[in-house]
Design a protein around this nucleic acid. Sequence first.
DNA 1: GCGGTAACCTGCATAAATGCAGGTCATAGC
DNA 2: GCTATGACCTGCATTTATGCAGGTTACCGC
Lengths: 299, 299
Amino acid sequence: MQVTAWSDLQAFLAIARAGQLARAAHVLGLDATTMGRRLRRLEARLGASLFEQTREGQVLTEAGERLLAQVEGMAASAAGIAESAGSAGDLAGSLRISVPEGFGSWFLSRHVAAFAAAHPRLTLDLVANSGLLSLSKREADIAVSLSRPRAGPVIARKLSDYALRLYASPVYFARAGAVERAADLTRGHDLVGYIPDLLYDPGLDYLGEIHPGLEVRMRSSSINAQQRLLAAGAGIGVLPCFIGDADQALVPVLPERRILRTFWLVTHKDTHQLARVRAGKDWLAAAVQREREILLAHQ
Amino acid sequence: MQVTAWSDLQAFLAIARAGQLARAAHVLGLDATTMGRRLRRLEARLGASLFEQTREGQVLTEAGERLLAQVEGMAASAAGIAESAGSAGDLAGSLRISVPEGFGSWFLSRHVAAFAAAHPRLTLDLVANSGLLSLSKREADIAVSLSRPRAGPVIARKLSDYALRLYASPVYFARAGAVERAADLTRGHDLVGYIPDLLYDPGLDYLGEIHPGLEVRMRSSSINAQQRLLAAGAGIGVLPCFIGDADQALVPVLPERRILRTFWLVTHKDTHQLARVRAGKDWLAAAVQREREILLAHQ
DNA sequence: GCGGTAACCTGCATAAATGCAGGTCATAGC
DNA sequence: GCTATGACCTGCATTTATGCAGGTTACCGC
């Protein structure tokens, strides 16, 4: 349809500004495959190649440079619209976001001030619990979950992948000895983990990916409690890297054993277009995009 | 998705410029229901009502006026893009359009010069035959058909409704007497129509909608031939109003008996995004939009 | 040539958008 | 109140877009 013309220009602009197709995709909340398709479609529509592929990403061609100058003009006008909407339709009321405990306290907590500053009349309820509030029951406006909900009147989209690793304190190693291989964990080592009966998400069953047969000695339903146990030298456990790497008292164990999980952004289908809900979604997406290196923790 | 933001602004602009939601929908090749949805979505996103409904259509609210000023800025930049694309990517080659014979000769023929002027290096093949060329076999780039193709690698979208009526010459009435009711056609009148065995589209079977049991005395597979027969006083027949009303030698018979049919715009799914194919589609859509009163022939 | 990084492609399942038709509602002129 | 005109709503089928995963290709530094 003709109306995709402007939105493909918007996609083009995002790529030009990001310098990388995948990064632009993430900024706009699209899959990279989709962003590639949109770019191809725009190029077909204009009959011109807009980017050359380089090792670092996409570099504008001459035609792309010319187009960018014009699309920047559109963007300037669009920015004025967003600004007017921001002031004229200043968000008020409250926004309740239910997130995994660790994500809330160790990651989002340093982004809340920016959100509050941007929306002075909006009250943000950041519910960081073991277990999530129900969107179906309208207990929260937005949820960040560890698995994608398949049923119910909700819309889910991938927020970000994140990495986890085993961590322990040097204090613990001094007491219990080093770990050379995963098999070492089956004997003579104390493991910290979740309470199997109280897993609020099957994705929290990490140890099965480290080595079969590992048994947890000290259990908690709270990732914050687990982190403190590890920092105090109580044992070895799996933490998201954005927590483990941030705690100076901890070091990674078998760092090559890197587990990946995904955060999902979930909203209710009836309210996902509300301005304050979209503001929350955009804020979350921008936050994880800005710190995706920390979330992915390649090394 | 966020990328719909710009396309919804494009939809808003079309409504603001057209003054009517349905007209704007047609300009952008959307259904009016869809256009309404997009408007609602934009209003939800911006938290503002953009139009007030009046009897004549949509009138901008204050918020709408402010938004329009900004979106016009985007449109000015977008116009520059279209202009650059038009000149930089000046269309060349050929474009073959297969259309129903009457539509080609009586309607499109007066629009061809404008298209040719706009695309001086593009050769236009307007194939106006009884029966259409096959898009599946790439015999044509675009087809205008009387029914919507359901199978094959093609994309169909409604181009326009058009009206048909019975017509005859005053010369004929002088010879055969007047027609007061549809039933009069079953006796003492000569009917002109298509050859049943050679109907290239079931939609051409009009007489069944006038009155049951009507039999055609003079048959032709060519609408132009039928038109000439009627103009020469040979009988009564059904013509599209854009033909019948244009022929000074003809008058409508039982004008309240107005038949509606639909033209469908068909392209091949692999080539519908090609610039020259899109140019042809846009030209066709604009042409029927410009003369839709003639096509619909309310009175 | 190898390896790291990014993009592209394809198939397929899923989600979202769209089109259509029918019915109802809103606006105004008469 | 009636009528004409336009918009809105809903349900549902269809179409289109998107996401995902896996594999391949392209770009370059080493």
